[in-house]
Design a protein around this nucleic acid. Sequence first.
DNA 1: CAAATAGTGTCTCTAAGACAATATCAC
DNA 2: GTGATATTGTCTTAGAGACACTATTTG
Lengths: 273, 273
Amino acid sequence: METEKEFLSKYRMEDYERPSVTADVAAFMIRPEDKTSYRKNPENKLLLLLIRRGAHPFRDMWALPGGFLQKGETVEECALREIQEETEVRPVSILPVGVFSKPNRDPRGWIISHAYASVISEESVKQAGRDDAADAQWFAVSFTCSDDGCYHLTLTYAEIRLEAVLAAEKTCFGRTSFRILESGGIAFDHAAIIAAALSALREEAKNYEAIFDFLPETFTLTALQKVQETIMNVSVLPANFRRMVSGYVEETDEYVRGEGHRPAKLYRRKRNA
Amino acid sequence: METEKEFLSKYRMEDYERPSVTADVAAFMIRPEDKTSYRKNPENKLLLLLIRRGAHPFRDMWALPGGFLQKGETVEECALREIQEETEVRPVSILPVGVFSKPNRDPRGWIISHAYASVISEESVKQAGRDDAADAQWFAVSFTCSDDGCYHLTLTYAEIRLEAVLAAEKTCFGRTSFRILESGGIAFDHAAIIAAALSALREEAKNYEAIFDFLPETFTLTALQKVQETIMNVSVLPANFRRMVSGYVEETDEYVRGEGHRPAKLYRRKRNA
DNA sequence: CAAATAGTGTCTCTAAGACAATATCAC
DNA sequence: GTGATATTGTCTTAGAGACACTATTTG
């Protein structure tokens, strides 16, 4: 009878075929649009970071940032590293979206992808700069469900317009997975990953937890509300929203002045609630 | 400039080091305990399937059923296949619990595990038989949080008693991950996987969706209630439970008779609600 | 009848939605 | 003052928890 030590010394991982493992990240940001009047508060736009592929396959098409899992790191660390490599921002939290492992999802071979959704405050990105790289751009996101049950994902940046069409495949435990009908020029199965990430993010935004990561340390309650409305694509009455988040935030002594209307008190996230 | 076809023909996956990928499944079942009186309804026990390892490492210790991802299948299919190999039952739905990829979690080398929780109706297991294999047993589950914040996972089968102690590491988006303080004789990091699976399952049982999988096609509302109470470790007033699930179930014409008290109507799950 | 569960009705309390009303600034 | 948002208060309604009460069976 061999001992465990003997067994391990003989064990060779190379005897079995293994897949390559990647982490892909749907990194979202919210940017205020230009003011239409000096009085009005700006509208918000939901943005998604895409990278133009410089190599085959899907060369010159747009894809989610991501990369191969390296030895010595967890999948989550890999996702954080990948997003930091592109934005120079390390997000505080990432949301696991799912594992994409259909056999032929990647023409290079057997590659399974771990998808995460990440939310980044616009200020962090500004401070980090690095918005110039022509191969990395923030696309405006539109994701809606039409009457026939098809989901339309539209990503726009300047003249570039990527339009994917998807069908909801199944809803399992509150998470929906999507089948790609039209990839719309998005590389790999990333259209389905983006749809799943948006769907998961909308689900999470209900809990008033994910939304704080989109904003700087201090924020107005209206800004917080706009963030939730932008993610979830709904609108709430301000009075009710304030009541709902009151347990999650605490006041500061500062105000935002010079906006052409009553100044708003700045709040910060309440920890340990 | 090479074409995509040329590129792919030169591309060799073997140039990069890759991890082995597994799927591990925490398969739960609910079994009624013996009646204490001819009148009383039986209490329920939450059971978890464990396999005694026949090979190194962790030889003769108990582990979750699971195995390596094979070419041509998705990770989810792999999990379903593994659980079917052990129980001869293919669960209708499995709940993704998380990816476990800490570098040294497996002494054999670089192996990342995809954890799923599965719920199996006792009837399916009975019909499939196969409860005899000495290397696969259903352990009674107890999972509680003590005053000092430590979680105690106790698995018992006959004289075997596995007692693990864990600390909640972080709660991210409603899911808690655990750090093992005492493995209690459970192989690999499976104690942490089991804790995460239980925690995820309890979260899901709130939605009255996961709980149907524990029961046969038709069931009494009391049985359904006991299932939820067993998973979530709480108790609800029968009147309120009935009101809550009323939208998820529909009546049949059948009754359960001969129980020493008023017979209960059998219900079935309402689809497309 | 007794013991037990099956099932119904209703009171209360809380949380969410709707909306009215007031406060405060820049111009 | 005007136009906009900020902030507070209150009416209404839906849903969950608590609990009392009735129904029905077996031994």
